[in-house]
Design a binder for these strands. Structure first.
Lengths: 152, 152
DNA sequence: CCGTATCCATTCCGATACTG
DNA sequence: CAGTATCGGAATGGATACGG
């Protein structure tokens, strides 16, 4: 166990990173979101060793992000599909993608854009919203502990 | 070089993960967003080895996410502050946090909530928006290559 | 098509000790 | 306070070969 105890401690970020922080996991998710479901397809598209892919898929299934389903009764075909929990990672994946687009490809153009399926226009940035719908930036955010130490 | 070539290839996700995917990097970012700037503060709050912290901070500075600044002229005090590029990771960090809250702490309560600084109410989920402001889910998204193979 | 098993070089990372 | 240097055990991950 290299990773420190806080890996699974009382922090949502830490727990999330513990699941997705493995090298390759997010790539698998990206592929899953673009429709890949089969082991060999993941393997070819991502060009990672079968070993690693096995481990990553297993972990993602164990943690509930992907579901492994049997396709063919007589065959041994399986497919890996996003669970509801997995689908819910869309905002994270898109946010990361967008950040990469903006800062890592500047001034290049990213190879792929994400568009609205309805009108074909590029999607806007992922935003954080207040309860009243107002858009928030960092200064508009505040952390509040669940259990105040004094009487805050 | 363990990581495959696609680490720095033509994919924004891959490039992003290459910067943030190191174990601990996102934790450092989280701390940075909550106001930590000093080496020893990071070290105590995250409880990771000075070695690792040095490496992570260096990498984040090199990649342009953090900036290292001298505080005191005669002393050797430094501070690490988020660059604009780093600040722009807020949505990603929040999205990841929220996902952890929703799926990894259920039915527990997360230890900390994020609230609107103005009215103290909890923030809403991070959303993806279309050009017309409409909220999008996975089915409403489509990937479009920059270089169409045929004539799209 | 979908993995598993074994091997082995490389890397990671905490512990510890040491500088300015 | 803010690192750097060195060490050693543990984990990583690709290559390869094998099985259902």
């Amino acid at each position: 166990m290299q990773r420190k105890s806080w890996a699974t401690e009382n922090c949502p970020m830490a727990r999330s990173v513990d699941i997705l922080g493995d090298w390759g996991s997010l790539m698998i998710l990206r592929q899953a979101f673009s429709g890949t479901t089969r082991f060999d397809d993941f393997q070819k598209e991502l060009d990672l060793s079968r070993n690693l892919l096995t481990a990553r898929l297993k972990k993602l299934v164990e943690r509930g992000v992907l579901e492994r389903r049997l396709i063919n009764e007589d065959g041994r075909r399986h497919e890996y599909v996003l669970t509801e929990m997995g689908e819910d990672l869309l905002t994270t994946v898109v946010a990361l993608r967008q950040w990469g687009d903006r800062w890592l490809f500047k001034p290049d153009l990213p190879p792929v854009t994400m568009v609205d399926a309805r009108d074909g226009r590029e999607i806007q940035q992922v935003h954080i919203h207040a309860a009243d719908g107002r858009e928030l930036t960092r200064s508009g955010l505040r952390l509040r502990p669940r259990v105040p130490e004094s009487a805050s």
